[in-house]
Design a protein around this nucleic acid. Sequence first.
DNA 1: CGCGCCGTTGATATTATTCAAGACCAGTGG
DNA 2: CCACTGGTCTTGAATAATATCAACGGCGCG
Lengths: 252, 252
Amino acid sequence: MSTLEPRTIPQTSSKVISIGELRAHCSNCSMRELCLPFGLASSEVDQLYSIIGSRVKLKKGEPLFRNGAPFAALYAIRLGSIKTTMLSDDGREQIAGYHMPGDILGLDGMSTNRHECEAIALEDTEACVIPFERLEEISRKVPALQHSLHRVLGREIGHDHRQLLLLGSMRAEERLAAFLLNLSERYKCRGYSSTEFVLRMTREEIGSFLGLKLETVSRLFSRFQEEGLVQVQGRAVKIVDLPTLKQLASVR
Amino acid sequence: MSTLEPRTIPQTSSKVISIGELRAHCSNCSMRELCLPFGLASSEVDQLYSIIGSRVKLKKGEPLFRNGAPFAALYAIRLGSIKTTMLSDDGREQIAGYHMPGDILGLDGMSTNRHECEAIALEDTEACVIPFERLEEISRKVPALQHSLHRVLGREIGHDHRQLLLLGSMRAEERLAAFLLNLSERYKCRGYSSTEFVLRMTREEIGSFLGLKLETVSRLFSRFQEEGLVQVQGRAVKIVDLPTLKQLASVR
DNA sequence: CGCGCCGTTGATATTATTCAAGACCAGTGG
DNA sequence: CCACTGGTCTTGAATAATATCAACGGCGCG
């Protein structure tokens, strides 16, 4: 089954909800502060909402889009979480992003009109489909929306650069500390606890994201626990000593 | 001397050429095929050109913009080369990009309205200043330009993701091979030799870019030379065995 | 209940870094 | 013209960090 036939909707078997079935609207979506609508007046949000043709529901492990699939839309996560992975020719994979509600996915497709990575749900997940041509169209009419899109793009680039810094110049323990702090911060922004959360990735996936092997990640968790920085039980993490963790990650 | 006072023009002592002095125009710039004008009709290029307020000339080592500087413009390199570096709080730096003519810089500033990295000239360099607000303005009127900007942004994101793959999952020799192939490809696109070129970075800078130490880079160059993959003399590189190099980098 | 995936931990191997010394090269000033 | 200097590059030896290999325990699910 080729992933290359042109389609507007992601290559997945999951249910696509037609717009008629939607009750939720951007303006009462709990993620509007982090997502594309941020900073828009309500009439502007309405225009954005008007082009959101559908939502997608994904079960754990299902792809939102696959490597090489035609690019037709951006996706805003409403619920759940998604990893994006880059594939090298010899089969190795590198997790490039770990996304949660409010994040916008699919930006990588804008240059070649093909997605250049895979986006896989880490748990049951729901995302809004934002047809890109229509988004371009209305963002020409609505400066605030254009600006918002640019802000999202800049944020993605900034994040990638910080991840380059992490992978290129931090040691293993610094990487894990930075990872935990990053999650902490993002959960906080979303109104969840910044000190207790459940990881949605396996040790192997965390390792891939951080440029480490799964055993190294596991050992580090154990050591952090010994040293009283965190409490870990499988994927449940509780941050105990935030200051030391910050110092480790050399993050302000 | 603070780098934070608001200015439109980069914080540098270099000469800024007013528009009156310009002879060159986008449409006869040799980089138009790679740069923002790509795919635009000539009247559209004229509109783009109309907002390019000035060009900047930088001497080797001078900054195009500094970390934390206010974001007001994108920059298109006409001539020369520029590195962009991320700074961690404890002073370490990571080179996030190695840019050459036709590349667009400054995209990282779009989210926070501050540049989040430093852009330093690696040799005498010339860049066009593209005021961002005006670019947003005319890209609302000119769909092709809007699209071109999005393409540039997508390209940057795609490039960053490939660099994440490199830093996160390739071994030292694979990284250097991939680096050389990437340069080869880019020089080729620009009409230069794809097999013989001069590096504009020191071993230390290459190391930073690749997440390695300068000694490791030096040893790898020596080994590649022994193995007949390249000929190296200081910064002058000649690629001898392209196929093996490609195989090493596991790049198609 | 058993199987498969996930996570932990130890022993060992490998890779890259660190430390150190010296060569090379271009620019500078005597 | 030459010696001097600072930055860059190369190479070797020792060391540290992380990966690899291997064994096992636990948990969830069919």
